[in-house]
C-alpha cells in the first residue's frame, strides 16, 4: 500500500534557495510524467526518511498535489547520510514500472558450518512489475545452501506479475564457497620499482644512437 507523504508546492529554485530549504528541514523534489507538466515540490525530510527507511517506492502525495507517485530517483550527499533531492513520477496503480530492487539473504546456510563462506555477488536487480506490487526487497532463502552450491537469478522468487530484466539468468546471486587461504605475509621479496611505460624504448633508441 502506498504511504502518505505530505508535500508543498515549491516556488523557488536554484542551489542557494534549495540549500536554505534543506536547512529548514525540507527536501526539494520534482514530480513529472504522464505527459503533464512537471511540478517543483518540497517534502519534509523526516517523513521522507521514514518512507525510504521503510523501503516504500509508491507514495500518495498529499497537500500541494494529490497524486500517486513513484520514487524514481534519490540524490544523496557524499557521505550517504542526507537526501538532497527526490524525483517522483506520476503513476497509476496498475501501470507496469521498471524498478531496481535490493536482494536480501535470509536464514543460515548449512555450508557455513562445513567451513564455507556465503558470498553475495548481486545485491540488486532490475524487475518490471505492476506498481501496486513493487516489493520492498527480494528475499533469498539460503537455509538449503550447502558448500559449493549457488543460487542464480533464475532461482529468485518474484512477486506475481513481476519479470526479471536481466540478460543472463544464470548469473550467480549468492554462493557458498571454500574461503581462500590467507596469504602468507612477506612470503615474496618486495619487488623494486614498477615498469615505466616507454622507458625501455627510450633506452634502446639512445643505445642505437
Amino acid at each position: 500500500m502506498a504511504q502518505l507523504l505530505p508535500v508543498e508546492i515549491r516556488e523557488t529554485s536554484g542551489k542557494r534557495r534549495n540549500r536554505r530549504l534543506r536547512e529548514r528541514g525540507r527536501i526539494p523534489a520534482v514530480l513529472y510524467g504522464h505527459g503533464l507538466e512537471s511540478v517543483s515540490l518540497a517534502v519534509p525530510s523526516e517523513e521522507l526518511a521514514a518512507v525510504i527507511r521503510h523501503g516504500s517506492r509508491l507514495v500518495s502525495l498529499t497537500g500541494g498535489v494529490s497524486e500517486s507517485a513513484f520514487i524514481r530517483d534519490l540524490q544523496w550527499d557524499t557521505f550517504g547520510t542526507h537526501i538532497l533531492h527526490v524525483d517522483f513520477t506520476r503513476i497509476s496503480e496498475h501501470e507496469v514500472v521498471e524498478v531496481r530492487v535490493g536482494i536480501e539473504l535470509r536464514g543460515e546456510a548449512p555450508g557455513v558450518r562445513e567451513g564455507g563462506v556465503v558470498t553475495q555477488h548481486i545485491h540488486e536487480v532490475e524487475i518490471s512489475c505492476p506498481a501496486s506490487v513493487i516489493p520492498e526487497r527480494l528475499e533469498v532463502n539460503i537455509n538449503h545452501l550447502k558448500l559449493t552450491e549457488s543460487i542464480s537469478l533464475a532461482g529468485l522468487e518474484l512477486p506475481q506479475g513481476a519479470k526479471l530484466l536481466a540478460d543472463d539468468l544464470e548469473a550467480i546471486v549468492v554462493e557458498c564457497v571454500v574461503p581462500a587461504e590467507l596469504p602468507e605475509e612477506a612470503a615474496e621479496a618486495a619487488p623494486g620499482e614498477p615498469e615505466v611505460i616507454g622507458a625501455k624504448e627510450k633506452e634502446e633508441a639512445a643505445e642505437a644512437e
Binding site: P183, A190, P191, P194, V196
Partner: peptide, 12 residues
C-alpha cells in the same frame, strides 16, 4: 606484501 602499480607512466 604492500600494494603498488605494475606499470606507471612516470616514476615520480
Amino acid at each position: 606484501m604492500a600494494l603498488m602499480p605494475k606499470r606507471v607512466k612516470h616514476r615520480k
